[in-house]
């Protein structure tokens, strides 16, 4: 990364002050002295900001921010062209989980992603990004279509979880997520996953199994919401902040655990302050990774993916399993 990328905070603030000055001029307001006082006051705060990151709970709030850019916003900013594809060919179309085909620098990519709304009305229409089974089945249909035409997959994760409702249970949300986990793990095309906001439990994981997993700086990824954790383990649902701070759900935590590959920086105040900048970061990674992964033979790609997943766990008494896995790969190939 170049120098500029290293300190997006400072650029952002400079830009902000520039805008303020411009605005003051336009409105013919004399902010001169006020602005310089503000600037002087902000310097130590900014310095502090650069060294001390915000708390996990702050990140939860940023990840849930109503103005935070969503899957479609990033897709539209990154792609030369994008066509949304609808429906699971079985029950219906879930607007909480979108998908389609787009091109980046001429390369066709299948995109899938959880989709919240950018205002209350849209949020209700999109069920706050909480997918039903048909959403997960649409995602599976699209990634298997991608596999058929040898197209890589990019997945954007941004949901508080799969929808916990009657309809969801009736149509088998458990089965839908389970099937995705199984099928994504052996998909013969590259799959890149980006947690752009909330990574909520099975609803996030249901489109989150891939070769690479990235998180935006202020995204979170957890097995249960801080509210849920608080009410069950701390026996007090109002202790969500305390829960968030103990659950190890930030990008930094998950990088340390080796669960994610890298953290994508955000401007000060969060991704919504400069969506274009964040989109350009994501686009760079997509291009870089796909250049490498698309040239790998499919069976090697799957092997690496499985090996990575197989190794996740934290317990006493671990033994080596690589030989067994190799033998299974041999058997699988012999069967084909």
């Amino acid at each position: 990364m170049n120098e500029q990328d290293k300190n997006p905070q400072k650029d952002q603030i400079d830009k902000l002050f520039g805008e303020l000055e411009q605005l003051a001029q336009q409105q013919q307001m004399d902010l001169g002295s006020d602005l310089s006082t503000l600037k002087a006051k902000m310097v130590p705060v900014l310095k502090n900001r650069e060294t001390t990151a915000c708390s996990p709970w702050d990140k939860v709030c940023l990840a849930r921010h109503v103005q935070r850019p969503g899957s479609l916003e990033y897709i539209n900013m990154m792609c030369d062209d994008f066509m949304e594809l609808h429906g699971d060919r079985c029950y219906g179309d879930d607007t909480a989980l979108i998908g389609g085909i787009g091109t980046i620098d001429g390369r066709a990519i299948t995109f899938i992603g959880n989709q919240k709304g950018s205002n209350l009305k849209e949020n209700i229409a999109r069920n706050h990004g909480m997918g039903h089974p048909e959403g997960y089945r649409k995602a599976l249909r699209l990634v298997q279509q991608a596999e058929k035409f040898n197209r890589p997959v990019v997945s954007f994760i941004d949901t508080s979880g799969a929808y916990p409702g009657l309809a969801s249970e009736e149509r088998g949300i458990g089965e839908a997520i389970a099937r995705n986990l199984k099928e994504f793990s052996v998909l013969k095309v590259p799959v890149l996953c980006f947690i752009i906001g909330e990574g909520g439990s099975g609803g996030a994981l249901g489109i989150g199994v891939g070769d690479k997993l990235y998180m935006l700086e202020n995204a979170v990824y957890s097995v249960i919401s801080p509210e849920g954790f608080a009410s069950i383990l701390l026996r007090d649902s109002s202790k969500a902040e305390e829960a968030a701070n103990t659950m190890k759900i930030t990008a930094e935590d998950l990088k340390e655990f080796g669960i994610i590959h890298d953290i994508i920086p955000e401007p000060v105040g969060g991704a919504h302050k400069d969506p274009q900048l964040v989109a350009s970061h994501i686009k760079k990674i997509i291009t870089r990774d796909l250049d490498i992964l698309c040239s790998k033979p499919a069976d090697r790609l799957v092997r690496y993916r499985i090996k990575k997943i197989r190794g996740i766990g934290h317990f006493n008494g671990a033994q080596s399993w690589w030989d067994q896995l190799l033998n299974i790969f041999q058997l699988t190939r012999a069967l084909k």
């Binding site: 793990s185 097995v223 759900i249 998950l254 499985i306 197989r310 996740i312 299974i328």
Partner: peptide
């Protein structure tokens, strides 16, 4: 369900077991 006391590691066991099921299926 998942053992939330183990944080993200418990969620990941869903992917781990499901991918093992995929291999079992691949060997018929």
């Amino acid at each position: 369900g998942a053992r939330m006391q183990e944080g993200i590691f418990s969620l990941m066991q869903m992917a781990k077991t499901a991918s093992a099921a995929a291999l079992l299926e691949a060997t018929a």
